[in-house]
Design a protein around this nucleic acid. Structure first.
Lengths: 269, 269
DNA sequence: GGTGTGGGTTCATTATTTGAACCGCTGGTT
DNA sequence: AACCAGCGGTTCAAATAATGAACCCACACC
């Protein structure tokens, strides 16, 4: 592992729960040498990736990151591209739709739209990161990510967010096979007991998974045939989203999505 | 210069104009060795800070940056805080307004808003770093930064971005005194010959400068009395921005901003 | 088939990173 | 007031990781 990686890894220790981290905290978190850590932190700070609170001496994420994001968004406007698609799909399906992008080992919501047609709603926190193993979006991503990645996730700690969360690696692997066979993911109650979701993966220019598009319905409305009726429109939207993002849907999956549903098609033309 | 810095510097070559950069381009831009560059680029890519287009082989900014921004913004919402202020001020003044944060020896744009009321516009590249000695924002920051810092900047190399850039340390020092006397900075043509700007400093919790708020008008529209009319609203917005960011405006400057500006002022250069 | 361009790789040399020990400060305890 | 524990930060010899000139391969254009 090179020095650059070591330094960049430090940045990933920051989260909403841990917005600022001191030198001592880093020593405990990383089990690395204090002197090395300090030099890395200083260097990151000098480049604006961290900033140090002059009184507590703790480090937090710096302004350089903001600038880089603005560059990325102006050149590859994920949010701006997904917004209309998500909104339209939400209106169409009459249920909450959200798009999330893969960021490290978790999914981070990019945009969501809730048509609020029903009394009961799925409430969605756009600041909440979503675990890969416990959400439909996450499973869709895992199913289409490369071996090494999914292996790493499945062998890592799998938190049980609810009683329904699947945490057994083998059970998850079986689930992923099913998803690959059907071309989309379904999950109920794994992250929030009251919610059932369906999700389709989104792909980047290289054909690798970059995120997922998902529709979430309250458990009470999640009947089989209703969920079934969403499938085609969800997959169609995922195709459009992938293309809009400059990505390509892998040919075999595209074929799967293009197929009529074998049982009985709910889609006309 | 450490390896970390060298790698991080590569990221700052990306901008709106240059959203993706190949290995050869980097060799030309940085005058560094190709092998070293390649290893750095690969390592950055492995950490999600870059991504490589598999067909053109060119690199562009990766998704890791978005994730970090979302963490920083949920814990210290600079952008979210500044956005409404900047937008409102831009609408109010009818000219381009931008907020930048101090990052090392340079200002890094955080947010900008352009009401686009006029035919001619100041085009603003949020990816472009702004030198301290050549922009109104930078001068505002320098004027209120601590001695050691401004001394270091003024004794360093001062690039002449245009024919109008002030590069003489003593001339700059005089300029800073005027700024301190008037409570805000004005600069014309120092960074872009066609642009005249006014800026007010922003302060952090410890009362030290952390950035600046600035209004930029095309040279042709920059009449004295129009600029004059912006001053109070700019300072008021800077006060609000500072407070919103959890900072404090130094008492003497706050007093200066609270005063009506008399017609006889100190800022006639 | 030569020639220029692009990305990417090799391996001996060398410079940079590394970490155990150390420093100085602060705040709590005896 | 002496002691200790914990904090951030620094030093310098030893070791490891970064470096770059030369090289390879593929492609495009004469």
């Amino acid at each position: 592992m090179g020095t650059i990686t070591k330094a960049l890894e430090l940045l990933s220790f920051f989260s909403r729960r841990r917005p600022s981290i001191g030198l001592g905290d880093f020593v405990r978190l990383t089990a690395r040498d204090k002197a090395t850590l300090h030099r890395h932190l200083v260097e990151l700070e000098q480049n604006g990736f961290l900033e140090q609170n002059p009184v507590t001496r703790a480090y937090s994420l710096g302004p350089a990151i903001l600038r880089l994001t603005s560059v990325r968004e102006t050149t590859f406007p994920t949010r701006a591209v997904l917004r209309p698609l998500v909104t339209q799909l939400a209106d169409d399906l009459g249920e909450l739709v959200h798009a999330s992008m893969l960021q490290g080992n978790i999914l981070s919501p990019v945009f969501h739209a809730d048509p609020a047609k029903h009394g009961t709603q799925v409430s969605f926190d756009e600041a909440e990161l979503q675990p890969l193993h416990a959400t439909a979006s996450g499973l869709a991503v895992l199913a289409y990510s490369d071996e090494a990645f999914s292996k790493r996730i499945l062998s890592g700690p799998l938190e049980a967010h609810t009683a329904l969360t699947i945490t057994d690696p083998q059970a998850l692997r079986d689930r992923l096979s099913l998803i690959r066979a059907s071309g989309f993911a379904r999950a109920a109650g794994g992250f929030d007991t009251e919610v059932a979701s369906q999700a389709a993966p989104l792909f980047g220019p290289s054909g690798s998974v970059i995120g997922a598009l998902s529709v979430a319905v309250p458990g009470v409305r999640g009947t089989e045939k209703q969920l079934e009726s969403f499938r085609d429109r969800l997959c169609a939207a995922a195709t459009r989203a992938t293309i809009s993002l400059g990505g390509t849907v892998p040919p075999d999956l595209a074929a799967l999505w293009a197929d009529e549903i074998p049982t009985q098609e709910t889609k006309k033309a």
